[in-house]
């Protein structure tokens, strides 16, 4: 045990405080400079009084911040669960086909149904993510031994490749779809207002609550399936439940923001580094660390890009790529 339970609990409290600070930054900082007093007044009145400062604060920044918190938490937890259930330190929602499924469905919406606009993509992306995850899980479950980590990774790669090629085939012949998709695919919190927030919040909250019950069984799975079985766990059921939660969390987050990379991959490692290998702690740590990283990246993008903005997906890629390299090197050291 690296740290005592008390230490870990106070760590969580610290992270909650940190998240509050970052959320405050996200509401007060942006490409438009607004006096702190104006922001506070808008927050205090809690109604749009028609001034631009109040509109920007309440209708742009607050929903955007809340979407960032929810999507970040969802991606962090989904990544942690996947890394646990597949015993693959490089797993994230992408390997489950979630991004490719969402992208395929968004392209379908653009080309076949003629729909355009972020707020309309939400449900298609969500549906696509769920379908892709279901497909991956079903394919991996075939055979006597069920959905083993290796089969899951293979099925995920196969479904991703299949869906990506279909998506490419469509967008190569349709430049409008290509451009729409290119924007969506970077991942962004811009333009995510109240309707999107209200749409995805119930799913993410449900998924987050459910995820907290998975810590103990993930610990069992981490010891290997036979050991877990020996400890009396129903491995197949656990895995199915874990995948259900991941599909809802990552699907909803991807629907809201587009495919945001690295968060689900990097944050669980950070969490593990801080609190050790116990999933009962890794899950809540990931749940708090991920939105901190996501919001921080978003605020940076807004300040660095002013008077325009940098998309959070771009900022994250720049920030997290070196961390990812570090993880790869660290993992190799452990193996050696």
């Amino acid at each position: 045990m690296r740290t005592s339970a008390t230490n870990r609990a106070s760590g969580l409290v610290l992270l909650v405080a940190l998240l509050a600070v970052v959320a405050f930054l996200s509401v007060t900082q942006g490409s438009r400079s607004i006096d702190l007093t104006d922001v506070l007044r808008a927050l205090g009145n809690l109604g749009d009084d028609g001034t631009i400062t109040s509109t920007v604060t309440l209708e742009l920044r607050v929903p955007r911040t809340l979407v960032g918190i929810l999507a970040g938490a969802a991606l962090g937890v989904a990544g942690a669960i996947l890394q646990g259930v597949t015993r693959n330190p490089l797993a994230d929602a992408g390997i489950m086909g979630i991004n490719s499924g969402a992208a395929a469905c968004v392209v379908f919406a653009i080309t076949v149904l003629g729909i355009q606009g972020v707020s309309y993509y939400v449900w298609f992306a969500f549906g696509g993510a769920i379908i892709a995850t279901f497909l991956v899980y079903t394919i991996a479950s075939m055979g006597r031994e069920g959905a083993t980590p290796v089969k899951l990774a293979l099925a995920g790669a196969a479904v991703t490749a299949g869906l990506t090629s279909v998506t490419s085939a469509i967008v190569m012949t349709n430049i409008d779809a290509l451009n729409e998709l290119r924007f969506w695919q970077v991942g962004s919190l811009a333009g995510r207002y109240t309707p999107i927030l209200v749409g995805v919040a119930p799913f993410i909250l449900l998924g987050l609550v459910a995820s907290l019950g998975l810590g103990r069984v993930l610990n069992g799975l981490a010891l290997g399936e036979d050991t877990a079985r020996g400890l009396g766990q129903r491995v197949g059921l656990t895995r199915a439940a874990a995948f259900g939660v991941v599909a809802i969390l990552a699907g909803a987050a991807t629907a809201a923001c587009g495919p945001i990379v690295f968060i689900g991959l990097v944050v669980p490692h950070l969490a593990r580094f801080i609190c050790g290998p116990d999933y009962r702690w890794i899950l809540p740590y990931s749940m708090l660390l991920a939105p901190i990283v996501l919001l921080l990246a978003d605020v940076l993008g807004r300040i660095a890009g002013a008077p325009g903005e940098l998309q959070v997906g771009v900022v994250l890629a720049v920030l997290c790529a070196p961390v990812f390299v570090g993880i790869v090197r660290y993992a190799r050291l452990v193996e050696a």
């Binding site: 438009r32 742009l60 002013a306 008077p307």
Partner: peptide
């Protein structure tokens, strides 16, 4: 173009 964020 000049690009503006929606805040601006």
């Amino acid at each position: 173009w000049e690009t503006l964020s929606w805040e601006n």
